[in-house]
């Protein structure tokens, strides 16, 4: 485990912005689970935050606001669905919002994604099903994951992630207890991928508490067994059942 001083320096450099991309992504991911790191980041944001006061405003391009409005409209469209459906979506959304760490904040769009690609299994799931929306930010949900804890079958569907030439998407199980991210395999470009043998070795508790992350790796997967490329998408598993 990292000691307090390391954690504080990681937090300080995270806030200052000088961590290299991979360390930055790892820190953001770790902060979701590691309260001491999350608090250290908050503290450094408060320490350095006053510097931003000094930055002079510049007029933002006029094209930006209409684009933002259009994106908000798209986000909110999902809430125009019938009441019963809406209540369920909001229930999911509320649970999503409870995830700590705004970096992987949930959104109405994440809920709408469930509506489109897997709504029935989310609302009427078999017992012990976990789901996760893996996203870069709330606007770009890329993968939908469901995990059956009984059978340890994991289903992942690429929704918006585009295949990248000469690169592979690799799925990782991240849990502090495991110390390092564990590969669950390469995510194929077919809409469905099932990876089960890799999950069988982990206890339900470890899986339930895990964050799933997808990094971009050289074709065929990480050569080192640890993520080498940027973590592009991540999400927390949540109970699909009540």
């Amino acid at each position: 485990m990292m000691n307090g001083e390391d954690t504080d320096l990681i937090a300080a450099e995270y806030v200052l912005g000088t961590l290299p991309a991979d360390e930055r992504a790892a820190a953001a991911l770790r902060a979701l689970k590691d309260k001491s790191l999350a608090e250290a980041i908050d503290a450094w944001s408060r320490r350095l935050g006053p510097l931003a006061e000094a930055i002079p405003p510049r007029e933002a391009p006029a094209t930006v606001w209409p684009e933002i409005k259009a994106r908000i409209d798209a986000l909110e469209e999902v809430l125009q669905t019938p009441e019963q459906t809406k209540a369920k979506i909001i229930g999911i959304e509320r649970r999503l919002r409870q995830w700590r760490g705004a970096a992987i904040a949930a959104s109405a769009l994440a809920a709408s994604l469930m509506l489109f690609v897997g709504y029935r299994e989310v609302v009427h799931p078999p017992e012990k099903t976990l789901v996760a929306v893996l996203q870069k930010d709330a606007q770009s949900p890329a993968f939908l994951v469901s995990v059956d804890l009984e059978t340890r079958v994991l289903t992942i569907r690429a929704v918006a992630a585009e295949p990248q030439r000469g690169k592979s998407y690799e799925l990782w199980l991240v849990n502090d207890e495991l110390r390092t991210p564990r590969s669950l395999g390469i995510v194929g470009d077919k809409p469905f991928t099932v990876v089960h043998p890799q999950l069988a070795g982990y206890s339900p508790q470890v899986i339930e508490q895990a964050t799933l992350a997808v990094s971009l790796e050289p074709e065929g997967g990480s050569p080192t067994g640890a993520p080498t490329g940027p973590v592009l998408f991540a999400g927390k598993l949540i109970q699909a059942t009540k």
Binding site: T63, I68, L75, A138
Partner: peptide, 16 residues
């Protein structure tokens, strides 16, 4: 510009 858009969409979502 893209980043500024993202920032305000996040503000919309996270204002809560």
């Amino acid at each position: 510009e893209d980043v500024l858009q993202d920032v305000y969409v996040r503000i919309w979502e996270r204002a809560v």
